[in-house]
C-alpha cells in the first residue's frame, strides 16, 4: 500500500511517502514559513524524487488535529481533496498520536503536548500495547495545571514530547518531579513517516466530503451564542446551497 502522509498541525511541517513498511521519502521543514507555501512544493518534490505520481497513492493519511486551526485545515483540505479527486482512501490520525509515535522505547505513558496559549495545552496520554499505539487518556484541550494534577495520579513514568514541552518544563518538573521524563532533540518534531505507519492500519473514513479537522474546541463566537441561545433556534442548516 502506497501512503502519502501530511502533518501541518504546528510550526513544523512533515510529509512522507511510505510503501508498506518502507519509507520512500520524508521531508520535514521547521522554519517560520506558512504551510500554504511549503506544503505542496514539498509534496511535489517527494513525488519527483521517488518517480511516482499522485495517482499511484492508495491512501492519504493526515494529522487531523488538534493543533493550529489554520495548520490542520491546510493539511485536512489538501488530503481530503487529493483523496476525493483521485478516488483514493482517506485516513485521519490524531496529531498528538502522530507525535507520540516518535517514542518507541517507553514502557510508561507518552504525553504529547501542544501549547494552546493562555496556560492551556492540547494533550493526551498514549501507550504502546502489542506493537500498537493506544490512547489511554483521550486527546483534550485543558489548562496545564489541571492536566498535571491528573497525571500526578498515574504511577507509570511519563514521557513528555513535543517542541512546546520546553515552555512548560518548569511547571511539569515542579508538579511531577522524577516521574516526568523528556524527549530530546529531533524526536520532538513530527515525522510524517510515523504518521503514515499509524495510518496504514487505521480505518479509512466513510464520507470524505464531511471529513473535517478535530479542533477539540468550539469557536468563541459559537460558544457565546450557545450560552445565550441554548436551542439554537432556526439556524440549522448552517450552510445551504443557493
Amino acid at each position: 500500500m502506497l501512503v502519502l502522509a501530511i502533518d501541518t498541525s504546528n510550526r513544523a511541517m512533515s510529509v512522507a511517502l511510505v510503501r508498506d513498511q518502507t519509507v520512500l521519502g520524508e521531508t520535514t521543514i521547521n522554519v517560520r514559513k506558512t504551510h500554504s507555501e511549503s506544503l505542496m512544493p514539498a509534496v511535489a518534490q517527494l513525488f519527483k524524487s521517488t518517480s511516482l505520481l499522485p495517482a499511484a497513492v492508495d491512501r492519504f493519511v493526515v494529522a487531523q488535529g488538534p493543533g493550529s486551526y489554520t495548520g490542520i485545515r491546510i493539511a485536512v483540505t489538501t488530503a481530503k481533496t487529493f483523496a476525493w479527486t483521485l478516488h483514493k482512501e482517506l485516513v485521519g490520525i490524531s496529531s498528538l498520536a502522530a507525535l507520540a509515535a516518535n517514542v518507541t522505547t517507553s514502557a510508561g505513558l507518552i504525553i504529547p503536548v501542544f501549547n494552546a496559549r493562555r496556560d492551556a495545552a492540547f494533550t493526551g496520554a498514549y501507550r504502546w500495547q502489542n506493537g500498537e499505539l493506544v490512547s489511554v487518556l483521550a486527546d483534550r484541550h485543558t489548562p496545564m495545571a489541571s492536566w498535571l494534577a491528573e497525571l500526578a495520579t498515574q504511577t507509570a513514568p511519563l514521557q513528555f514530547i513535543g517542541d512546546d514541552v520546553e515552555s512548560f518544563r518548569p511547571q511539569i518538573t515542579a508538579k511531577l518531579g522524577q516521574q516526568a521524563q523528556f524527549v530530546s532533540g529531533i524526536d520532538n518534531l513530527p515525522h510524517a513517516s510515523k504518521l503514515a505507519l499509524l495510518g496504514q492500519t487505521a480505518q479509512p473514513v466513510a464520507n470524505i466530503h464531511r471529513f473535517a479537522p478535530n479542533y477539540l474546541r468550539i469557536t468563541e463566537a459559537e460558544a457565546n451564542w450557545l450560552k445565550q441561545h441554548p436551542t439554537n433556534e432556526g439556524h440549522e442548516p448552517y450552510v445551504e446551497e443557493i
Binding site: R73, T77, T81
Partner: peptide, 14 residues
C-alpha cells in the same frame, strides 16, 4: 486558504 489548498490539490493531482 481552503480554496487555495483544494485548488492546488486538484491541479497537482491532474
Amino acid at each position: 486558504l481552503i480554496g487555495v489548498s483544494a485548488a492546488k490539490a486538484v491541479a497537482f493531482a491532474h
